[in-house]
Design a protein around this nucleic acid. Structure first.
Lengths: 221, 221, 221, 221
DNA sequence: AATGAATGAGCATTCATTCAT
DNA sequence: AATGAATGAATGCTCATTCAT
């Protein structure tokens, strides 16, 4: 096949060494495998936690050999630190998309929470990946929260066009809001690492509290 | 030795087998050992985390034999679930004492936070015991937070004498407040599992946000 | 490419398949690669020992692919057994050259030792290649020592023209001398696999002892 | 049983807590196991070398569980460093005993070599334990050779009562002699890690050479 | 000829728990 | 009641060799 290609169409790739396509194909395959491993790891973390996410379990689920794991990750820790960024990125994107055109805070919060909740429900294992990351993938955890708080802060600012708070003030606020909703979710919306709908009224409570808390916060500076 | 004691004073308690004092003494000793083990475990968790809190380390620190551990706890998990209730109770009490006579919310929050922070600074290992408990001692973690939210809710209600919110509403609010402050602390006040003072302004930001958030929350029901 | 070459000049060598020049060029290239691999292996053994001389390390250093290794050696063991003969040959030659025209034993010993020492100092990794070879490349090790003892024996015989000892007697003697100097070097001239100068007097001690044995050694002090 | 003992002979141990016998018994058992492990390791090293002396093999041979190994040694390296001192001590003692009353060098050498050879033949695996130790248990190896050279030097001095050489001179000499005989043994007396009798004449060659060096060796044939 | 992804057996070490003493 | 030796499954990781491309 290679022979035929190089004979029949020697000019197709403009004289480039015919190595590229091969290595590109390989690189794609490799990247695909890397993602499969991370998906497998995510599911296993969802079920057994990071502590139960042994290389043996991951490779069995990803249907690769034990040794192949180390072609894609330098260590278990390395993999742990990639699970959240990879699997969490999509969630962040979904949330960002959901709030891209909101104009006031309650819309922001409502849509953001809905998108967040929808994603967690659809990909139930993400919740555990995220909640245990503080311990097992601290770098990823903090990077994730920096991102989240940053984006949140930007949306908050956009939703209050006349307000002139500093970046740090908005990030502080975002941090508190994330904490409040995380604890609400943890206390009322999670059983055995599985997300369930919040009891009626909780979400509204959060929205109300948040709205006036912010007004007061901003007014009193 | 035991035999002799029970034999030499059979009449003191009117013919009933006079086991109580002895077993009481034993029980006291046993209880003391149990507490020593839990203290040791607390310190080890503070230093190495629950994951590094092996029975070997704990028994070495508590100066008991490996096997003796199982006279006091049925398993490692059992011990994990007792560390937080035992060591955390004191902190809860300190906080409760600090806020027992407050009359308005900002005093409540200020004093509560100060007491909390003071305790964590004085007993640095508690922070890790608490923060990792969600993962390694989930039952204890949730019981602790139930307690905390409950007490918090009661204080909130007391600080707003004319308000008629339901218990559940106050607990929901307490949960959000705990989340907000926990995340603030985690993001700005902890490095390498060690508490450090919050940057200036963070605490005030929390107090302001909290005060008006609550007012709005309560007014709009 | 190969195809084209063999097709375009079929007549040059009178109809015989004109493989030779090509395969010669190839063979040369192959031989060069083989040597590069062995050089790389030598350096790695010098630094990490045979046990640390993995195929991965060697191929990385020789800048060839992992698989290409097996085009030149049938196994790791095979390579191990070729490192010493290849890299040691030069040393043996240097020593042989140094002693080619000596006429008495003390000159023989002095010059031989100096040449040996000079070579080891200049190519520090050879020492480890040699000293660990008994374990990891036993065939090569024994072949090397056969060679060494053989040449040594011949020089000894040449330095004693009137002596009629058998070859075996001279080889036995050579073996003992090699052992004596090797142990002297090992005990007094090597730290952490690196050759350093012998303490003053050791070399002279060896020379005296060798000449006259214990009696002479003791008498001549 | 314990009860009976403490009742029937309360004075036998003079009031000492009856814990001692138990822990002594335990300690003896433990020591016995430690030695069994080292014996097993010695045999395995004799057969497969240090590189093949895995904990799995050792514990299987010593009929203990995998984990029990670590009750007696802190690591594989720790064990490696104890094999030679433990198994080699007996050999050194046998040699020392054999030469305790010699009065001249040739007797010293003859008896020492015979004892050495006899021991190696009876405990064939020691040879490999010793010869590979330089690489796998360097500390033990050098300690062993320091001991050996030291004792050897003392014997040499004793066998030459009128001689006033320094300790260092005698140790240097001992080192060369050990080297010479080791290489003789290695080259003529070992096949596949198994000791076999030296060919006739080799031992005599060594004795002659040692006494008078090359000159004597050659003259006395 | 040359590549490098894939394999899978092997390794040292840890540790909660049990149980004979 | 108290001890601590013993168990054995489990873990993360390495590496010589093979083989599809």
């Amino acid at each position: 096949m290679v022979f035929i290609l190089t004979q029949t169409s020697p000019t197709l790739n403009g004289g480039l060494p015919r190595k590229r396509p091969v290595s590109t194909r390989r690189a794609q395959k490799s990247e695909a495998t890397r993602l499969e491993i991370l998906e497998a790891a995510g599911k296993i973390i969802g079920k057994y936690g990071y502590a139960g996410c042994s290389i043996a379990r991951v490779t069995a689920k990803a249907k690769i050999s034990h040794g192949a794991f180390y072609l894609h990750f330098s260590s278990q820790k390395d993999m742990f630190n990639q699970v959240l960024p990879t699997l969490g990125a999509e969630m962040l994107k979904m949330i960002a998309d959901a709030i891209v055109d909101v104009r006031d805070i309650s819309e922001l919060e409502q849509r953001g929470l809905e998108a967040n909740f929808a994603y967690l429900t659809k990909h139930p294992y993400i919740y555990r990946v995220l909640s245990e990351a503080e311990l097992f993938a601290p770098e990823a955890f903090h990077a994730y929260h920096d991102d989240l708080a940053h984006g949140y802060a930007r949306s908050l600012r956009r939703s209050r066009p006349n307000d002139l708070g500093s970046d740090d003030e908005y990030e502080t606020l975002a941090t508190m809001l994330i904490g409040a909703r995380t604890y609400l979710l943890m206390r009322y919306g999670v059983t055995n690492h599985v997300i369930k709908p919040l009891p009626p009224g909780k979400l509204e409570a959060y929205l109300k509290f948040v709205a006036d808390g912010i007004n007061g916060y901003m007014a009193s500076r």
